[in-house]
């Protein structure tokens, strides 16, 4: 369990924009993950994805790490931004662009 936490900590530290999702950006396995991929793709931004379906320890680990019960989860510059609803709201309000800008 602590291993997963360490791996996640490194992933978040080493990737300015990282999305924990079901599936990958080419083939999202869940509508909510797909929506966040679509949002990120609308910006000219590099991002990493982690498929939580590939590793049950990461899947549970990221929920514990963020204290957040659902997937997807977006991190930018080491900060938890939110899940699908929050990303959608921040996208619609234009705030997400500001958050992604320094990344």
């Amino acid at each position: 369990m602590s291993d997963a936490k360490e791996i996640i900590g490194d992933q978040i530290k080493n990737n300015k924009v990282i999305l924990y999702m079901k599936g990958n950006r080419e083939m999202p396995q869940c509508g909510f993950s797909a929506r966040v991929v679509q949002i990120l793709d609308s910006y000219d931004v590099m991002y990493e994805t982690v498929d939580v379906l590939a590793d049950p320890e990461i899947r549970q680990g990221i929920k514990d790490y963020s204290n957040w019960p659902t997937i997807p989860q977006l991190y930018v510059n080491g900060e938890f931004v939110g899940g699908c609803d929050i990303c959608t709201e921040l996208f619609q309000s234009g705030e997400l662009e500001t958050i992604l800008k320094p990344a």
Binding site: F32, N67, W68, P69, T70, G82, C84, D85, I86
Partner: peptide, 27 residues
């Protein structure tokens, strides 16, 4: 913040959020 709001709702739902609710969209 939005994160704090969602966390508040999740905390009220407790284990139901982990076990019985597959997806909950919040406004």
């Amino acid at each position: 913040s939005l994160i704090e709001r969602h966390k508040l709702v999740y905390s009220v739902l407790g284990d139901a959020m982990k076990e019985r609710i597959h997806a909950l969209s919040l406004k």
